[in-house]
Simulated assay, not measured.
Amino acid sequence: MRSAGIRKGGRGAVRALLIAGPTASGKSALALDVARRRDGVVINADSMQVYRDLRVLTARPTPEEEAAVPHRLYGHVDGAVNYSVARWLADATATLAEVAASGRLPIVCGGTGLYFKALTEGLSDIPPVPDAVRAEVRAACEGRDTAELHLMLRERDPTSAARLRPSDRLRIMRALEVHAATGRSIGDFWDARAPGPLAGADVEKLFLAPDRTEIRARIDARFLAMMEAGAMDEVAALAARRLDPMLPVMRAHGVPGLIAALEGRISLAEAIERGQADTRAYAKRQMTWFRNSMPGWRWVEAGAAGDPFGT
């Protein structure tokens, strides 16, 4: 469903700017700069920066940056919530309409490809899974390795099993939950997609493409800077809540390793190395996913001077 007001203005007028890229590529800084130049509002499209528990470890904009220009959908979700793409899309749709009504320019910024895909192409209408069904499926999955869960899914829903990586535990469990709740393949819902709020709208889409050697160095350095800025205190507070380890916030890059270090299962140095390695691997996946799944984006060199959207 398209939001009212998204396309108002003269023919060809750009109604939104989309800024994507791998982690540590400079997206937030670019969005802040463009928002200052163009009277914009920065809207978060990063699935971990929605959580209020992890400002430092997810590299959310600082309070000073958030005060400089309006920022929306940052840190507005409690870590105990299993926040989904569908919930983000509902929040983003309402925010886009609000920003458009104010006459300011929406600047959607983040690294979560599925969020951008939902905005521009739409989202499958998967029915909500009742809490009791989710709890039953998770209890059945507890203690089983991911490969075994994939075999379980292949027996119940071979179509979606064939479309999921055998190592993708979260999506395998999601498919199992949907099948248990509906008796249908999650693939049935994937293939029935409603248009996104920016489908057909006049938008400019930019992907920051950093040099791979440089981005790896930046990721490693940023993780160390996060540790100095209090990331361990954030993780300790999160661990004290004893949340379900399958919740998204508990799987944020760096969290599992730092919790293991807090519990004495690995050293702090090992936890840092693990967090850096996981983040580097994620950046690589982001680059590959956008290249293969998001045609029509303009790739630009990260760190280029000036406003890449022009004047």
Rank of each mutant, 00 (worst) to 15 (best):
Leu114Asp: 04
Ala209Lys: 11
Ala180Arg: 06
Pro195Cys: 11
Pro130Lys: 07
Leu32Ala: 07
Leu151Val: 10
Ala221Arg: 10
Pro295Trp: 08
Arg37Cys: 09
Ala217Gly: 13
Ile172Asp: 00
Glu214Pro: 03
Leu151Ile: 10
Val50Trp: 00
Arg15Pro: 01
Arg171His: 15
Arg280Tyr: 03
Ile219Trp: 01
Thr146Gly: 06
Leu32Glu: 06
Glu148Tyr: 08
Pro22Glu: 13
Cys109Asp: 01
Ala35Lys: 03
Ala4Met: 10
Tyr282Gln: 10
Leu268Ser: 05
Thr23Met: 12
Ala175Gly: 14
Thr288Leu: 12
Val300Met: 03
Glu121Trp: 07
Ala20Trp: 03
Arg156Leu: 13
Ala199Lys: 11
Tyr74Asp: 00
Glu214Ala: 15
Ala181Ser: 14
Gly79Asn: 05
Val14Asp: 08
Leu258Met: 12
Leu123Gly: 05
Tyr115Asp: 02
Leu114Phe: 13
Leu17Lys: 03
Glu136Leu: 13
Ala161Asn: 02
Pro248Ile: 12
Leu17Arg: 07
Val85Trp: 01
Thr112Trp: 00
Ala225Val: 01
Ala147Cys: 08
Ala97Ile: 01
Ser293Ala: 14
Glu301His: 09
Ala192Pro: 13
Thr311Trp: 02
Arg212Thr: 15
Gly275Leu: 03
Pro128Cys: 09
Glu121Cys: 12
Ala221Glu: 10
Val85Ile: 09
Met246Leu: 14
Asp244Met: 04
Leu262Trp: 01
Ile266Ala: 05
Ala13Glu: 09
Leu164Val: 05
Asp168Glu: 10
Gly230Asn: 03
Tyr282Gly: 06
Val85Asp: 02
Asp168Arg: 11
Arg52Ala: 06
Ala269Leu: 11
Leu262Tyr: 05
Phe189Thr: 14
Phe207Tyr: 15
Arg156Val: 11
Arg184Lys: 14
Thr146Tyr: 02
Met227Leu: 14
Thr159Arg: 08
Lys284Phe: 04
Ala252Leu: 08
Glu273Pro: 01
Arg11His: 07
Ala140Gln: 14
Arg265Ala: 13
Leu119Pro: 01
Arg184Glu: 09
Val133Trp: 07
Ala217Met: 12
Lys8Ile: 09
Val77Trp: 00
Ile43Glu: 00
Ile215Glu: 02
Cys141Gly: 06
Arg212Cys: 11
Asp78Thr: 04
Ile215Gly: 04
Gly257Asp: 03
Val81Asp: 04
Met287Ala: 14
Pro248Lys: 10
Gly111Asn: 03
Arg154Leu: 04
Thr93Cys: 00
His150Glu: 06
Ser47Glu: 02
Arg193Glu: 15
Arg36Leu: 09
Val81Ala: 09
Ala94Met: 00
Phe309Asn: 03
Thr58Gly: 02
Leu30Met: 07
Gly230Leu: 10
Lys117Trp: 07
Leu119Lys: 06
Arg163Tyr: 08
Val69Ile: 06
Asp91Cys: 01
Glu204Asn: 11
Arg280His: 08
Arg193Asn: 13
Ala139Ser: 13
Leu123Phe: 07
Leu243Lys: 09
Glu65Arg: 07
Glu142Asn: 14
Ala68Arg: 14
Trp190Gln: 13
Leu198Asp: 00
Ala24Gln: 08
Leu198Tyr: 01
Arg285Gln: 13
Glu98Thr: 09
Phe189Ala: 15
Ala97Gly: 06
Arg134Ser: 11
Ile272Gln: 00
Asp46Glu: 05
Glu136Ile: 09
Gly122Thr: 12
Arg174Ile: 13
Leu30Glu: 06
Pro166Phe: 08
Thr120Leu: 14
Val14Cys: 08
